[in-house]
Amino acid sequence: MTDAVTLAAHDVRWEADGRMIIDGVTLAAEPNRILGLIGPNGSGKSSLLRLLCRLRKVASGVVTLDGADIAGLPRRDLARRLAFVEQQATTDVHLTVCDVVRLGRTPHRSAFASWNAADEQAVEAALTRVGLAERHHQPWHTLSGGERQRVHIARALAQDPRELILDEPTNHLDIRHQLSILALIRRLGLTCIVALHDLNLASLFCDRIGVLHEGRLVACGAPAKVLTPELIRRVFEVEVRICEGTGGHRHVEYVVDHQQGDSR
C-alpha cells in the first residue's frame, strides 16, 4: 500500500464559512513521484494542499504521513519532513537570497543554536540545486518572479524534506520560466504534490494527475487515463481534442468556435 510510506489523505473534509470546500477527498502521493492537482478556480486545490501540510485543520477524515496522523506530529518534526511552497509569497523585509533560504533551516535549529556547518551546507546545496549558487547576496526585491520561485524552492529544500508541496509554482511566470521551474521540480526526485493550472504542463511533468471539481476528487491516475475530452468538458466546461504529443505525452488542444467567440 503506497499511502503507508508517504503522504495521503483519507476521506478529508474541510469547510469555511459554512461552505464545504473539500468534500471527502481520498488520495495518496507515490514516493519520489509527482502528483499534479488540476481543477478550475475555486475547486479546492489550494485548500487541499493546505490540509495536506496541516496549515488548516481537517473537519473530518485524516491526513497521514507514513501511515501516522499528521495532526499528532509536532509542527517542527513535520517541517523537517515536509516543505510547502506558497503561491507568490513575498515580503517587505529587506532580505537577501541567502537570508530567505536560511529560513528553511528554522525547524532544524533550537532557539539559541548558532548557525553550524550542516546548516551552511544545506543552504549551499539548496542554492546550487535551483541554480542560484552565485546569487547569495542579491536582495529579494530585485529578483524576477521566476527567480523568487526558485529561491522559495531552495528555501523548501534547505528544510531537507522528503515531501514537497507546491501551490501553483508557475503562476504569473512566462512560458520559459514555467518550463524551467517544472523541469527543476522533476529533477529534484522528491515526492511532490503540485497544483497546476495548465493541463498540458500537468500532462508533461506529472506522473499522475488528480482532478478536483467542487471540492471532490473526480479522477486520479496517469495523465493518459485522466485527460479525456469528456472529463475536461464536465470539469472545465470547455471542448478539447486530445492528441498524442512528443514522447507519448497527451496534448490538449482547445476547440474554439471563433464565430461565437465562446469556447462552448
Binding site: 496549515l55 517541517a79 515580503t91 529560513l103 525547524p107 528544510q159
Partner: peptide, 10 residues
C-alpha cells in the same frame, strides 16, 4: 513571508 510560511517552517 506571512503566517502560513511561518507555520510551514515549524
Amino acid at each position: 513571508f506571512g503566517v502560513d510560511a511561518a507555520a510551514s517552517l515549524g
